[in-house]
C-alpha cells in the first residue's frame, strides 16, 4: 500500500437543508446552510480530527460524506470514485468500506436486538456470511473490542455506556471497512471510560490499518487522537493543519480563541494563561453573516473587507490551510 495515498477527498461539499413554509403547498423560503462549501482530503491510515462547536456542521459533514444525506453540491471521492454520483447497488457496495460510530451508545443500539444480532446485521445485509460462521465472527469481534465472547445473547440494557460504545465499535468493524466516521464517540461517556475507548480506537487503527474522520467538540481529545485537525465554524472549515501546528501555530482568530478557551488540568498553567473571550453567540446558519462567517465575533476584523469578501481557504504551506484575510 503506497504511503500518502489519498483515500478520501472532499471537494466543495455543500449540505443545505430547506426551510419551507405553508401546509399544503410548501414554499421554499430559505436554507439552513449546515455545510457550506468545504474541501479537504484524508490519507489512508490517517486520523483527521474535525472540531467545532454545536451547530457548526461537523456531524452533517460526516453524514454527507457517507451519503447518509445526499449533498446539495460538491464531490466526495473515495478511492477515486465519486460517491455523490453513485446510486443503488453500486453505492451499497461502497458502503461496506465506510462505517460510522455514533455519539450516543444509548440511542444507537436497538434495545430489542441482542448484541449478536446488532453486530451481525451488517454482515447479513451485505451478504458476507450467515449462520454458524456469522456467530463465530461476531464472537471474535466482541473479543477484538475487549468484551466477553459470551455476551453475544445479551441485550444492550445489560451493558454500561462504555461497553455499549464497544458494541457500536464492533458493529462498525464487522464488515472490515477502510474508513470509519467517529461522530463524537466518547462525548456521552465518563472521563475514566473515555480513555478506554480512545485507546481502543487507536489500537484498532494500528491493527486493521483504519482511516478515521474523528468528529468531536473537545479539542484536547481531538488533538490527542488526530494526525491533522480541521476546525469548523458555521459551515466552513476555517483552519486545517497538523496536530502540532494547531497548538503552536494556530493562525485563524477563531482557532486561537477556541484553543484559549479549553481548560488545562493544571492550576499553575491556568494561572498564567490569557483567555481570548469571544463576545456573543454563533449566528444562525440559516442566515450566516456576509463575508467571513466569523467577522461578527472577531477582534481582528478589517472593516470593509472581512464583512464583505469571503476569505479564500488558502494553502500557506507545510500542510496548513487557513481562511482568513489577516493571514497573508
Amino acid at each position: 500500500m503506497p504511503e500518502n495515498e489519498i483515500l478520501l477527498e472532499v471537494k466543495n461539499l455543500k449540505m443545505w437543508f430547506p426551510i419551507t413554509q405553508g401546509i399544503i403547498f410548501q414554499r421554499h423560503i430559505g436554507d439552513i446552510k449546515a455545510v457550506d462549501g468545504i474541501s479537504f482530503y484524508i490519507r489512508r491510515g490517517e486520523t483527521l480530527g474535525l472540531v467545532g462547536e454545536s451547530g457548526c456542521g461537523k456531524s452533517t459533514t460526516g453524514r454527507a460524506i457517507l451519503q447518509l444525506y445526499r449533498p446539495t453540491a460538491g464531490d466526495v471521492y473515495f478511492e477515486g470514485k465519486n460517491l455523490c454520483k453513485l446510486k443503488g447497488e453500486e453505492l451499497r457496495r461502497m458502503r461496506r468500506k465506510m462505517q460510522m460510530i455514533f455519539q450516543d451508545p444509548y440511542a444507537s443500539l436497538n434495545p430489542r436486538m441482542t448484541v449478536g444480532d446488532i453486530i451481525g446485521e451488517p454482515l447479513e445485509v451485505h451478504n458476507i456470511m450467515k449462520g454458524k460462521e456469522l456467530r463465530e465472527r461476531v464472537m471474535e469481534l466482541l473479543e477484538i473490542v475487549g468484551l466477553n465472547r459470551y455476551f453475544i445473547n445479551r441485550y444492550p440494557h445489560e451493558f454500561s455506556g462504555g461497553q455499549r460504545q464497544r458494541i457500536g465499535v464492533a458493529r462498525a468493524l464487522a464488515v472490515q471497512p477502510d474508513f470509519i466516521v467517529c461522530d463524537e464517540p466518547i462525548s456521552a461517556l465518563d472521563v475514566s471510560i473515555q480513555a478506554q475507548i480512545i485507546n481502543l480506537l487507536e489500537e484498532l487503527q494500528a491493527k486493521f490499518h483504519l482511516t478515521y474522520l474523528f468528529i468531536a467538540h473537545d479539542l484536547s481529545v481531538v488533538r490527542h487522537i488526530s494526525d491533522r485537525v480541521a476546525v469548523m465554524y458555521l459551515g466552513k472549515i476555517v483552519e486545517l493543519t497538523t496536530r502540532d501546528k494547531l497548538y503552536s501555530d494556530a493562525r485563524h482568530p477563531y482557532t486561537q480563541a477556541l484553543l484559549s478557551a479549553v481548560p488545562i488540568p493544571d492550576p499553575v498553567v491556568e494561572e498564567k494563561r490569557k483567555r481570548i473571550i469571544l463576545v456573543g453567540d454563533v449566528p444562525s446558519p440559516a442566515n450566516p453573516p456576509k463575508g467571513c462567517h466569523f467577522h461578527t465575533r472577531c477582534a481582528l476584523k478589517i472593516e470593509g473587507t472581512c464583512d464583505v469578501v469571503e476569505p479564500e481557504f488558502k494553502d500557506i504551506g507545510g500542510e496548513h490551510w487557513v481562511a482568513c484575510h489577516r493571514v497573508a
Binding site: 454500561s160 462504555g162 465518563d190 472521563v191 475514566s192 471510560i193 473515555q194 480513555a195 478506554q196 480512545i198 485507546n199 487507536e202 479539542l219 484536547s220 481529545v221 488533538r223 490527542h224 487522537i225 496536530r243 497548538y247 484553543l259 479549553v262 488545562i264 488540568p265 493544571d266 498553567v269
Partner: peptide, 24 residues
C-alpha cells in the same frame, strides 16, 4: 487515574492515555 486518563491540550507529543480499567 483521572489525571492520567485525560489528554492535555498542551501535551508535547502523542502519549498513550492510561485509562482506569473497569467500572464504578
Amino acid at each position: 487515574g483521572l489525571l492520567g486518563s485525560i489528554p492535555r491540550l498542551d501535551a508535547e507529543r502523542k502519549a498513550k492515555l492510561t485509562p482506569i480499567e473497569g467500572l464504578p
